[in-house]
């Protein structure tokens, strides 16, 4: 078991090193940092001196090592566009994205589990059919079209909700700002959160539905029914509990994709988070910001994957013995 944990940890580190290598490659080979830092009136001596100072004359692997050391200390270079440290810019924008992601994930979990249980218990019927058909169409629609559709309905036609931005935000602590405490902030959150969470919601719903249908066919449910337990007690005391374990692990894995897909939602709703920042940086080829975003998101993904694997290990005893699963 310990060897499995160590193996997974080493794998995670290797992935991060590989991503770091890509990020480093972006710095090193796209655009010349000297060009960005020195003006027109430069001499060869200036260039040589700066190359020496920046360590560009060092062997490749030494440069990579120094880059990793810098990255670990939070030094990811200065944004070409804004002239501020890339990591600072990202940290400024991070609260907006994390808040959106958390609200979307909660929405997806709560509504997805509820609809999944409902459609599993009532296998046929007009409401179930309606939910399943709508979810099928919803999955086929590209995220940005759903966002535009919601904007059209609730912002243009009904004028109930704002169509862009984050509303008023209030600072919490040193660097966190929240929109969860103001009325306009909450109103601005609704449409983006639904847009972002819809896909995950349908995913969780289908998963809960199939897991629950499976559980409801098990012997212990039939025995519970034979014992004369009420349907409600069978469904909620016995069946749901055994349905939720796989759901929670899948939901955990989905948090990563929610953060990645927030790029699209944030662009549609002009939500001032890291996703919008990333798209801007791709458009303007702002390498330090792109690389920092890449590093940040990979740390998140690799971390989440590692935690989920460890959670599997805790939940499923079969993985603990002998050969660790792959």
């Amino acid at each position: 078991m310990i060897s499995y944990i160590v193996k997974r940890a080493l794998q995670s580190v290797l992935v991060l090193l590989a991503v770091g290598f890509v990020a480093f490659g972006m710095f090193r080979f796209i655009g010349d940092p000297i060009d960005n830092m020195l003006g027109q009136e430069r001499t060869d001596a200036d260039i040589e001196r700066l190359r020496e100072i920046l360590g560009l004359n060092d062997p490749f692997l030494v440069q990579y090592w120094n880059f990793l050391k810098g990255a670990l200390q939070g030094d990811m270079g200065v944004s070409f566009r804004q002239g501020r440290p890339a990591l600072d810019i990202i940290l400024d924008r991070l609260p907006a994205t994390l808040e959106l992601a958390m609200v979307s994930a909660t929405f997806a979990m709560v509504v997805g589990i509820f609809l999944g249980i409902y459609t599993a218990i009532n296998r046929k019927g007009p409401i179930t059919n309606f939910i399943l058909t709508t979810s099928l169409i919803g999955v086929s629609l590209p995220t940005f079209l759903i966002g535009i559709l919601l904007i059209y309905l609730f912002a243009v036609e009904l004028k109930w909700l704002p169509s862009f931005g984050r509303g008023d935000v209030v600072p919490v602590g040193d660097w966190w700002t929240t929109g969860l405490l103001t009325a306009s902030g909450l109103k601005s959150l609704i449409l983006p959160a639904i847009t972002l969470g819809l896909y995950q919601m349908t995913l969780i719903m289908r998963l809960v539905r199939s897991e629950m249908s499976e559980v409801l066919r098990q012997d212990y449910i039939r025995f519970a029914r034979a014992r004369g337990l009420k349907e409600r007690a069978i469904n909620f005391r016995h069946a749901v509990k055994n349905t939720l374990i796989p759901v929670i692990t899948v939901a955990g894995l989905q948090i990563g994709s929610i953060i990645a897909f927030s790029i699209i939602t944030e662009t549609v709703f002009q939500w001032p988070g890291v996703g919008l920042l990333f798209i801007d940086s791709v458009q303007f080829v702002d390498i330090p910001v792109m690389a920092s975003y890449l590093m940040m998101i990979s740390v998140m993904f690799v971390g989440i994957n590692f935690i989920v694997d460890m959670a599997y290990l805790a939940i499923d005893p079969r993985l603990r013995g002998g050969k660790g699963g792959n």
Binding site: V15, I30, A260, I263, I279, V282, V285, I287, M290
Partner: peptide
């Protein structure tokens, strides 16, 4: 591990560079 749309965006950004 990474969603493909994110990978595509990154490759696009790098290639654009």
């Amino acid at each position: 591990t990474f969603p493909s749309i994110l990978v595509a965006m990154l490759i696009f950004g790098i290639a654009k560079g």
